[in-house]
Amino acid sequence: MSIEVSGLTKKFGDFVALDDVSVSLPTGQLTALLGPSGGGKSTLLRIIAGLDTADSGTVSIEGVDATGLPAQKRNVGFVFQHYAVFKHMTVAKNVAFGLEIRKRPKAEIAHRVEELLELVHLSQFSHRLPSQLSGGQRQRMALARALAVEPSVLLLDEPFGALDAKVRKELRDWLRRLHDEVHVTTVFVTHDQEEALEVADEIVVINEGRVEQVGSPDQLYDEPANDFVMGFLGEVTTLGGVVLRPHDIEVALQPGLAGAVRGTVTRVLRVGFEVRVTVRTGDGDPTAVSAQASPETTVVLTRTHARQLGLDAGTQVWLTPASGATTVSSMAPAGRRAAVTSGV
């Protein structure tokens, strides 16, 4: 294990930002810290880097207890959301900074900087100032600067968060390929589940200062530990007391299967190739105000399927979870339930 965090707690005044967090991050992997805004991802990353100190708990990096070590001694590369460039230095000087601090010979530094700029495709910009680069280029420069000192771990705090969607996607793919080449243990923070699912080997879901689940993208998607994780990784709906994905519901026009929930279609919405059907389940009085009195379930069908069934507003249907559907009990505390809906 490259990074071992155990029992970390961090408070800002009365506010608990991290609550007894323990997690092990394996060597050479690309791990995503995923979670909603304010969940404590940056705080955890900064404590690992030594930029913040925890109130209790320990951090060890590559088997060395780093809890009391200052940031300077941790040999950690850190990439910030807003680039944190040294704006009075050229691109080459920025990248050389860590090596100059380590008093490496001039020729070696020049050679290494050249290598790194090649790696991040900024060779032709080496004499520019950071202000003359685009956001994406600045972030690649920051990445080269962090890699220059051959860190034992590379930490990235929402590295592409300040970039537009298209550049973000390109850089995300590029980061994955870069990681496959250099194999440095990498942890990156994101609140974009798609980014995490697409890029990471392993995902740590963090919410309200706690680790909700750790696992591979497939594990998280197929076997979510709770309704929060399930809700955060994709769209969910409820049916008869369980949380499941809207495309994992079978719709029948007759009460065939045992345990089927009867309902009435209230709305049919076509979005591209799929159809989203809203079904009011239970015998709720249509005029009831409370959602509890007439719970609604969203079902996603292909257009062909919906046409076969001839669904329309007012149609009586029977709903069952599809066999093999991922479901989670919705019996969770109220506060956590609120988090689910905001996560979707």
Binding site: L51, F80, I101
Partner: peptide, 13 residues
């Protein structure tokens, strides 16, 4: 911005 100083610190300065 303090993150610039933090970047320098994590580079060993």
């Amino acid at each position: 911005e303090t993150d610039v100083e933090e970047a320098a610190a994590s580079l060993g300065a």
